[in-house]
């Protein structure tokens, strides 16, 4: 699994609420048997015209947005389909963190497994972040996972919560499947009773 420790980046603002995973990566791009190359089709139907040319009005296509690794998204980001292709596309494009007021459950789980940090902030902080980016599009945030803080340009720190297990896995790049494989004795013992 990809490690996550700290990240300092400018922000891509996408204020839309309820962005579903069909928008993050449309279904026609799911006909793949590996995880590579999905970043090119991130937000494809918002990002490109019918002829494949970039739409100037979409935020990712603005020249100053290139290379930014933090997505500031609207409420309930990642709802809908369980496709892990959504975080694969976000990470493939270059994002390492998404900040919102809430995330859909499956998207959140899928993100954590791909080193993409979903950060939940309260409504006031959320609005403040959007205001900051509006006033200064080059607003830079510093995320520290160990400290569980997002540092704003004025030095103010916003704390965020993350469960201890996910944090440890992200900080150390723990292979969760390897962790559960090591519990084989417990699983076998469970199966004997469960099926007995």
């Amino acid at each position: 699994m990809n490690q996550f420790t700290t990240l300092t980046s400018k922000i891509v603002p996408l204020p839309n609420e309820n962005v579903d995973t069909d928008q993050i990566i449309p279904a026609r791009f799911l006909k793949v048997t590996d995880k590579k190359g999905l970043g090119d089709n991130l937000f494809a139907d918002w990002r490109y015209d019918a002829d494949g040319s970039p739409r100037a009005d979409f935020v990712l296509n603005r020249p100053e947005m290139q290379g930014r690794q933090i997505l500031l998204a609207g409420d309930n980001f990642g709802c809908g389909s369980s496709r892990e292709h959504a975080p694969w596309a976000l990470v493939g494009y270059g994002f390492r963190a998404v900040i919102s007021t809430s995330f859909a459950d499956i998207f959140r789980n899928n993100s954590l497994k791909n080193g993409l940090l979903p950060i939940v902030v309260d409504k006031d902080t959320h609005q403040q972040l959007f205001s900051l980016v509006q006033e200064d599009p080059n607003t830079t945030l510093a995320i520290d996972l160990a400290a569980q803080t997002v540092t704003l340009p004025d030095g103010r720190r916003v704390a965020f919560s993350i469960d201890h297990f996910s944090k440890t896995c992200l900080l150390n790049g723990v292979d969760e499947i390897g962790y559960v494989l090591n519990l084989r004795d417990k699983i076998e013992a469970f199966e004997r009773i469960h099926e007995g």
């Binding site: 369980s82 496709r83 892990e84 975080p87 499956i106 789980n109 899928n110 497994k113 791909n114 297990f165 969760e176 499947i177 962790y179 559960v180 494989l181 519990l183 084989r184 699983i187 199966e191």
Partner: peptide, 18 residues
């Protein structure tokens, strides 16, 4: 409930989920 592909791999490998 629905799961992502990393979790599909975990269930195939361990018959368990975190």
């Amino acid at each position: 409930f629905g799961i992502g592909t990393s979790e599909v791999e975990m269930v195939l490998a361990t018959q368990c989920l975190l």
